[in-house]
Nucleic acid binder design. Sequence first.
DNA 1: CGCTGCTTTGATTCGTATCAATAGCAGTGG
DNA 2: CCACTGCTATTGATACGAATCAAAGCAGCG
Lengths: 234, 234
Amino acid sequence: MNACAQCAARARAICQSLSPLELDDLNRLGRRHTIRAGQTLQWQGADSMLVGNVIEGVLKLSVADPGGREQTLGMVFPGDFIGRPFGARSDHSIVALSEAKVCTFPRAAFDDFALSHPKLEHQLLRRTLGDLDRTRQWMQLLGRKSATERVAGLLLAIATRAAAPDEEAGAPVRFRLPCGRQELADILGLTIETVSRQFTKLREIGAIEIPDRRTVVVVDRAVLEDCAAVFEPS
Amino acid sequence: MNACAQCAARARAICQSLSPLELDDLNRLGRRHTIRAGQTLQWQGADSMLVGNVIEGVLKLSVADPGGREQTLGMVFPGDFIGRPFGARSDHSIVALSEAKVCTFPRAAFDDFALSHPKLEHQLLRRTLGDLDRTRQWMQLLGRKSATERVAGLLLAIATRAAAPDEEAGAPVRFRLPCGRQELADILGLTIETVSRQFTKLREIGAIEIPDRRTVVVVDRAVLEDCAAVFEPS
DNA sequence: CGCTGCTTTGATTCGTATCAATAGCAGTGG
DNA sequence: CCACTGCTATTGATACGAATCAAAGCAGCG
């Protein structure tokens, strides 16, 4: 009876491809950690010696340049894979946004294991392709979108994820933000002041309500979509 | 004797992992095309039915939003893989920047083949991980860098790739730009006018020379690096 | 020569960053 | 319960950088 059996991320992580026996082998290589909110799992520029799965919590990938400007490159959720297998150094930090549980492996050992388990590599490939798609979407936002479009777009993305599937289309969606304004700014490539102003603006035009700093209610989704200027295939 | 044997990209593409026999099987699925400069291989929003390798030439991945703003998401060179295996629709266009040769496969057929050839999937995984790294680097540029930093950074990247390995460190590097100003602007998330002004500025401060529109000489690499504000691990 | 397309330069506008002050809120201890 | 502290968010004034609008320069080519 190993730790994987009761792992919360089991069904979503790349491990889903393994038989109980194989899982047992992999498990022997791994270690589970708990990380406090704000703690850095891996520093930008350091050699990437660990890879692994997120079991619980939310982390971010980020880079800071010499001027201190910080940019979030992606968010990592339970079931997602972190780290860089197959021998490159990582050029970004991995930081926990909330308290998080991760399951890590020494990179070299994981590489060997993956090489001899094609099903695992296949899952990892699918996941990486998905990561790439999402990263590219994000990229468009950073390259060409205005502050309003960025904030509206992010709220829509969260709202879509948060909406109960049985919800009627026009109904107000309510959700808690996963992080504070500074984090949002780093994600969107803006400053905290600009993010704050956009929130106020979206409230004033009746797209959203902000009952408290961490909660948002999408009152008029159509207006919000207009602001986001999303590409809708016809 | 199949077409792969004399393929220029053979050594660099994911096919390098296959035995002659396997290569033959894969070859039977594929078709070679020549694409004119400016032609679109795949439209943003359309179902992605083709995947393949670039044999020759340069292509770009790009998105356009409803307002007509265009953003380049990445460049594709010989040996690179294009398209989205394993069933997702592509949300970007693939456009040839120069005349190009590609070797394409119907997506479904390629998926099947890959599933039964772990070595191929391994190569594809490595390549995708590399793509992801490069995309994330790009992302930082779009999120937080000034116009000068973007242009200087791009020139440095090209210069580094173009420099002969035996070149002495301080010597001027000379290269041709792979595309015109508008393309550069789309890559950097700027307008053509801004790109042009930055070229002029870099010339005035003595970082580069511009003997003609398509050629650049890096006169003072140190100055250029200052402008790019790159993160140099100490 | 006069076209056409691409690039550079100039004048102006607009949007976001920056700087600075204030406001809201949670926790602490009197 | 209230003052005090520290932190995060909002709001305001201003500066700066890039977009936009407009015009002129330059090359290739019929």
